[in-house]
Each structure stands twice: as structure tokens, then as C-alpha cells.
């Protein structure tokens, strides 16, 4: 290409590509924007969204599977076991460490820890990022009732057992056998 031709070609291609670009930007100038005005409007959050955790405390059995699965060790949980019932002390997630990887959700045998759709978690104090997932501390009313029922049942059972043992002992005594060592426990 001669110098003159390339000179003219430069001008033509420059003007042409500028016009092409302006056509595209101009087209979008006339279109409606695609953004939403965030605090007023919000985009839908999908079901699988990995936001702040929530715990179905009733189901949780304090097995520590989630805490073990956590790569950053941000889950701490503690509960006192009363037979089958749990007295909750704490179940905290440290959101300063949490990286929302969802690895704690999969190993749960009871499927009780989930990630919710809440994402705005703004505080002015770092300690507030230490989030307690428990909806109640200690034992739930149902658990208390169940515990009481279980205890009563146990007592009854024990009483029944004791009565039975006493009966047997009595029977044994009447038969004149030497007393057995188990009797002392009854």
C-alpha cells in the first residue's frame, strides 16, 4: 500500500470504526438500563444461595461433623447431653473467618445446618461477627417435657424393676437362698 493510500485508509477506518462504536453506545443510550436500584429493588436470591447460616436446632445432635469439616475452624458448638436430650450451651460461627464454602452443610447427618439467603451482615463491631446460631439456649420446652417424661418413665421403670427385684428377693428369701450381690443395687 502506498503512503497516500494508507494515509487515506487510516482516516477512513478511523472515522468508520468510531461511527460503528457510537452506533452501539448510542443504541444502549436509548435502551432502558438493566441495573436495579439496590436498596429499593432487589434481585431474586436463588434457593441455593450461600448466605448466613441457619440451624434447625431441634434436629441437631451436636455431632461436630460440620465443625470438623470446616476448613477454617470457625464453627464452635457445645451442648450438654441429658440422655437423649441436649442442653445447648453454644453454637457459634465466626464470620470473620467463615468463607461461605458450604462444606459444613454436606456432612451433616441430620441435614440441620443450612445456608440462608441473608447476605447483608453489617456491623460496626467485630465481635458481632461472632454469630450465635442458637434460637434458644439450654433446653427447649419440648425437650424438657420429653426429658421429664423420659425421666418419669425411667423412674417408673426403675421403680418397677426395684419392685420386681424386691419381689424376687422376697421370693428368694422365702425360699431360703443366700442373698445375691445384685440385690444391694435395687
Amino acid at each position: 500500500m502506498s503512503v497516500v493510500a494508507s494515509y487515506i485508509n487510516n482516516i477512513v477506518s478511523g472515522v468508520k470504526s468510531t461511527l460503528v462504536g457510537m452506533r452501539i453506545t448510542g443504541k444502549y443510550f436509548l435502551k432502558k438500563p438493566i441495573t436495579v436500584q439496590y436498596p429499593d429493588e432487589r434481585l431474586p436470591i436463588p434457593n441455593r444461595y450461600r448466605g448466613i447460616h441457619y440451624l434447625e436446632q431441634e434436629k441437631c445432635i451436636n455431632c461436630l461433623a460440620c465443625a470438623r469439616a470446616c476448613p477454617v475452624d470457625c464453627i464452635e458448638m457445645d451442648a450438654v447431653r441429658h440422655g437423649k436430650e441436649l442442653e445447648w450451651v453454644k453454637f457459634t460461627i465466626d464470620y470473620q473467618k467463615c468463607m461461605f464454602c458450604e462444606l459444613c452443610v454436606y456432612p451433616c447427618p441430620k441435614d440441620c445446618i443450612h445456608m440462608g439467603n441473608e447476605f447483608a451482615f453489617v456491623t460496626t463491631d467485630r465481635s458481632e461477627l461472632h454469630h450465635d446460631l442458637l434460637s434458644y439456649k439450654g433446653m427447649s420446652r419440648e425437650a424438657r417435657i420429653r426429658k421429664r417424661e423420659a425421666e418419669e418413665k425411667k423412674k417408673k421403670k426403675a421403680a418397677a424393676k426395684a419392685a420386681k427385684a424386691a419381689k424376687e428377693a422376697q421370693a428368694a428369701e422365702t425360699e431360703g437362698d443366700p442373698p445375691q450381690p445384685t440385690e444391694g443395687e435395687a
Partner: peptide
Amino acid sequence: LMLFEKICGARLTYS
């Protein structure tokens, strides 16, 4: 990213 959000729940760090 929205499509990814739907399948795995995260927008950047998918895991």
C-alpha cells in the same frame, strides 16, 4: 454469575 449462583449459591468462590 447469576447462573452459577443458581447452581452452587456463590458468585465468585464457587467450591
